[in-house]
Computed example of a mutant assay.
Amino acid sequence: MYIGCHLSSSAGFLAMGETAVSIGANTFQFFTRNPRGGAAKPFDKADAAALVKLLEAKQFGPILAHAPYTLNACAADEGLRQYAIDVMKDDLFRMDHFPGAMYNFHPGSHVKQGVEVGIDLISKALNQILTPTQKTTVLLETMAGKGSEVGRTFEELRAIIDRVELSDKLGVCLDTCHVFDGGYDIVDHLDDVLADFDKAIGLNRLRAIHLNDSKNPMGSHKDRHEVLGGGFIGLDALLRIVNHPKLKNLPFYLETPNELPGYAKEIAIVRKSSG
């Protein structure tokens, strides 16, 4: 199985890979730049190439880049929408240096424009961003539904995908905390939730899972992550997700509130559960 966590990219690409190995991970996630905004560091091709060699040597699963939280492809302000487009284009250029990599982003918040307007703007942005030659798969993340977030239901994500011309470049990242907070009962009715996902989107588009517990009850629309087993989802339910026949071959990325020793412990727990 492929299991990893979110790592800081400040020390460089190779350093992230070496850190992942040191805690028992065989994949990882990282922010492409400051998650609260700002320019990315100059791209170091030699460092990127060194990471690729390490990933191949250690038989890593696909690494996952996460777009900054500040991006809003469906903002009411045209300048903010263009900023999101420009950043994502630059990020995808960088990520194409890593074979099999994926790029995850929060669809955005419609800021009182309405969900339909938000869906239309997000899809229009993706139609400007995606190219036929890109190698990196772009993932829409399932959202908890706080505020005016778009992507709180599987149907909203499907509506975005349906309007994107190069939809073969798109997939979905399912965040366990988000879908639980969004009202999907992954604790007692996981099979039903997966059936709903398959009907709305298609399980073939599910490419990654953010494995997080939740500080809040189901349907709270809060989006506050908790360590595995420390929240309302619970360890047993999370391990059932990891070992589900339809999910176990996907890469899992921890975004729990942890430092490296905590991530190492959670990775070991997940590995032990999968035999």
Score class of each variant (00 low, 15 high):
225 H>G: 04
225 H>A: 09
80 L>V: 12
72 N>M: 08
44 D>K: 07
211 L>N: 04
226 E>Y: 08
112 K>V: 08
274 S>K: 12
73 A>I: 04
54 L>M: 11
178 H>T: 08
176 T>W: 00
173 C>Q: 04
153 T>F: 03
59 Q>A: 15
253 Y>R: 08
209 I>T: 11
85 I>A: 03
199 K>N: 14
74 C>N: 04
119 I>D: 02
225 H>V: 08
271 R>W: 06
37 G>L: 07
241 I>R: 07
104 N>C: 13
159 A>D: 11
38 G>T: 09
21 V>F: 00
144 A>D: 04
201 I>M: 07
159 A>M: 11
111 V>S: 06
53 K>Q: 15
132 P>M: 11
90 D>I: 00
96 D>Q: 05
106 H>K: 08
164 V>I: 11
153 T>A: 08
197 F>W: 06
94 R>L: 13
129 I>R: 02
5 C>H: 02
173 C>W: 01
150 V>K: 03
7 L>C: 06
27 T>P: 01
102 M>L: 12
120 D>F: 12
206 L>W: 02
44 D>I: 03
124 K>I: 10
60 F>T: 03
32 T>Q: 05
105 F>R: 02
185 D>C: 12
165 E>L: 14
158 R>F: 06
127 N>L: 09
228 L>Y: 01
187 V>L: 12
87 V>S: 00
246 K>C: 11
27 T>W: 01
262 G>W: 02
188 D>S: 15
200 A>N: 13
35 P>H: 13
206 L>Y: 02
22 S>I: 01
131 T>C: 10
239 L>T: 04
105 F>A: 04
171 G>N: 01
271 R>L: 13
212 N>V: 14
219 G>I: 06
